[in-house]
Design a binder for these strands. Structure first.
Length: 291
DNA sequence: CACCAGGCAAGCC
DNA sequence: GGCTTGCATGGT
């Protein structure tokens, strides 16, 4: 990968295993959206970014090399060898097929606090509405970010959310999830949980710690582990994954979530999280189980 | 109008 | 342990 700066834009050439549509349409991130011209704009780690891609050339608009090195290189998981991951998973013919559809998927390294709140909001919800609720949370409680002549909002920190009531949260229209958000804020405010503490734990221990938050169960904790803590041995099973796993590996017969998890763990092991993302994208692109 | 959306908690047995 | 039900809101 070559990096050069032109005007204020950062241009990456010879980028491999990278596709913006695959990355932002596989359900891991709620803050990036496609613009009319095909570029994507979003906010992460307190910074806004507009990014575009033509073949293996990627442009980060109005972005310094410093921000790329400090923020976006890690956010887009550029340090990881996805070819190796895909080669390993492709020994399974079904995964090989799924990987053809989402060959440019990468698992973003998102902020843990943001992942906790965002995936609490995701519970029994649909992606457009999740995005709306998260956006209103940011607009009402986050900080303003000026970028390329427009105003964006950062995801609110624990400090910025400290002390909010259900009444305060009513503007984001989170429904029954507001009390779960407040419980998370409360546990972090009182020091019962912290980002550093949770990160220090093993995957199994971290999962238990996360599940002590109201509104965080098996599926939401797996998403937080995978998307906010880089624990790729988690395999979140939602309705889409359940359907496609049953379709692909169980002759389309209904299975319990536990059966599917156990099967995925033994089949994909430490690469389960990547397998999950390829399957999720494949299921949604092909609308498996919805017709 | 019913039904559902990247589930979960609480209440049953 | 496993199984049901209610839950806020918005889209179809």
């Amino acid at each position: 990968m070559n990096i050069e700066t032109k005007n204020n834009d950062l241009i990456l050439e010879n980028v491999s295993d990278f596709n913006l549509t695959h990355i932002f349409d596989c359900g891991q991130c709620f803050r990036f959206n496609q613009n009319d011209d095909g570029t994507y704009t979003g906010v992460a780690k307190g910074k806004a970014l507009t990014i575009s891609q033509t073949h293996d050339t990627v442009i980060l608009y109005d972005t310094s090399e410093e921000d790329f090195k400090n923020i976006w290189y890690d956010f887009f998981d550029f340090d990881r060898d996805y070819k190796k991951i895909k080669d390993t998973l492709s020994s399974d013919p079904i995964m090989a097929d799924a990987i053809k559809f989402g060959s440019g998927i990468r698992i973003l390294n998102q902020d843990l606090w943001e992942a906790i709140i965002s995936f609490i909001i995701s519970s029994s919800n649909n992606i457009p509405r999740i995005k709306g609720i998260v956006e209103r949370l940011c607009q009402n409680f986050g900080k303003k970010i000026e970028y390329m002549g427009k105003t964006y909002y950062s995801f609110p920190t624990l400090d910025e959310l400290q002390g909010v009531t259900a009444d305060d949260l009513s503007v984001i229209r989170a429904g029954f999830r507001d009390k779960y958000i407040i419980d998370a804020i409360d546990k972090f405010s009182r020091g019962i949980l912290s980002v550093d503490y949770i990160n220090s734990l093993s995957t199994a221990e971290a999962k238990n710690a996360l599940m002590s938050i109201k509104g965080v169960g098996n599926k939401v904790s797996d998403c937080i582990l995978l998307f906010g803590m880089n624990r790729a041995n988690s395999f979140p099973v939602d309705v889409w994954i359940k359907r496609i796993m049953e379709f692909c590996y169980f002759n389309n017969e209904e299975q319990s979530v536990k059966t599917i998890c156990d099967f995925a763990n033994s089949k994909f092991g430490t690469l389960g999280g990547y397998a999950q993302q390829y399957l999720f994208f494949y299921a949604r692109e092909n609308k498996i189980g919805t017709e």
